[in-house]
Write a protein that binds this DNA or RNA. Structure first.
Lengths: 224, 224
DNA sequence: GACGTTTTCAAACGATCGTTTTAATCAGGC
DNA sequence: GCCTGATTAAAACGATCGTTTGAAAACGTC
């Protein structure tokens, strides 16, 4: 584990530090020191700091995408062009994030991934990279979700899809830190440990409820 | 507008740049150049780069908190210790983010605020600062929400509150960037402009649906 | 053991970082 | 006019940034 080759140790250390502090805030010297490697090792193995980030993302995103695609293929084989069950579709989206071997024990990576998706400006070339890595898969999910919610008009669907994505990252990437932060503040009502599989089940329930809620009729409010 | 005093121009420029690129990624030289000020102006007016961030947050967070507190006070006056209507509580949480004059036309600030809450490690001293600025208010919201959802057991409530927070930032801070990003990718199904008030209404509906959904019974799945 | 290749190492590169210093400029009161 | 305080300006500080260099060390092959 600790005596893996330098390449892997660099990827592991960078992943953790990038997730915790952000890409720009972490220096190559901190990464190489944490990995027990020489400063020049990053440029030797990855060409540049950007290359390190890129390699780090590809290492886990590629198998993650494959797992999600497999879920979607199974749904397509089972249901064809008719609308797919909403819960199964949500599970296809969420579950690989905590069950795929390449990522299930890498909470730091989920946190980093959420950073990249929510604030892709963290690095200039992040948007092209993410689109290249998983752009078509994202589109496939959006279309399947659209088909599963045919009664929503386009605008409402856009809003709810965005909320879904926010809730997803909250559940798949921010949950542990959230609990730890509350505990740090002395709040004793938060669970001491979050179970990833449980989080998936709860997230499916929550998003299902939000997605199928009745649409808001214009002008309606229940102020105070 | 453009000839406001140096202090305000610095705050405006830093707010935009911090939100777009992140705190660590933006240099003082970029900020002062964007503000049309001298490099030393930041240290003169705010003492340090951290002081600039702190001042920038306080400028809008303080009135925002006051508005949210006012909403809560009104709910408390109307309903006392009995559970408050869920939609009204959600509105008290969301609406000030897009209606308060200090913040309603500052989408950059909402984006920056979401950065600070989701990844407070962006700056070492961010967590104490945020707790100091709005820690008690957050607790008040959590307790009111807990009272409004008495049928949920503690663990389920924790998960759903976390999802709520994720969906909230997605709707209040990431929506415009999300639409712009989709448009950049050539997707033509996204609205060309997002209406903030509409986003609040949709967000209330979504979160309401998710929060009141039936709890997941253990072992239940509808795989594929 | 000598070989070519791969990897590690210490040192330095120029650039940029946040901050400080010192002087110049501006404001209003007398 | 001059004086006092507040603000701006230019220049430099030491530190750290990502990157490059060239030699040393480690490696498998003949």
């Amino acid at each position: 584990m600790t005596d893996a080759d330098t390449r892997s140790r660099l990827l592991d250390a960078a992943e953790r530090l990038f997730a915790e502090e952000g890409f720009a805030a972490v220096g190559l010297r901190a990464i190489t020191a944490a990995a027990g490697a020489n400063l020049a090792a990053v440029n030797y193995h990855f060409g540049s700091k950007d290359g390190l980030l890129r390699a780090l993302l590809e290492r886990r995103v590629t198998p993650l995408n494959a797992a999600q695609e497999a879920h979607l293929d199974a749904l397509e084989a089972a249901h064809g062009t008719s609308p797919w069950p909403l819960d199964a579709l949500l599970r296809a989206l969420f579950e690989p994030l905590v069950t795929e071997p390449c990522i299930r024990d890498a909470p730091h990576f989920r946190r980093l991934l959420s950073r990249m998706y929510l604030y892709r400006d963290d690095r200039d070339h992040m948007e092209p990279t993410l689109n290249e890595l998983s752009g078509s898969l994202r589109l496939r999910f959006v279309e399947a979700l659209r088909t599963a919610l045919p009664h929503l008009d386009t605008e409402v669907f856009f809003y709810r899809a965005a909320f879904l994505s926010g809730a997803m990252w909250a559940g798949m990437a921010h949950l542990e830190e959230q609990a730890a932060c509350c505990a740090r503040s002395g709040e004793n009502w938060v669970p001491t440990h979050v179970d990833s599989q449980r989080a998936v089940e709860e997230l499916i329930r929550f998003c299902h409820g939000g997605l199928v809620a009745a649409v808001t009729s214009i002008g309606e409010k229940d102020h105070a």
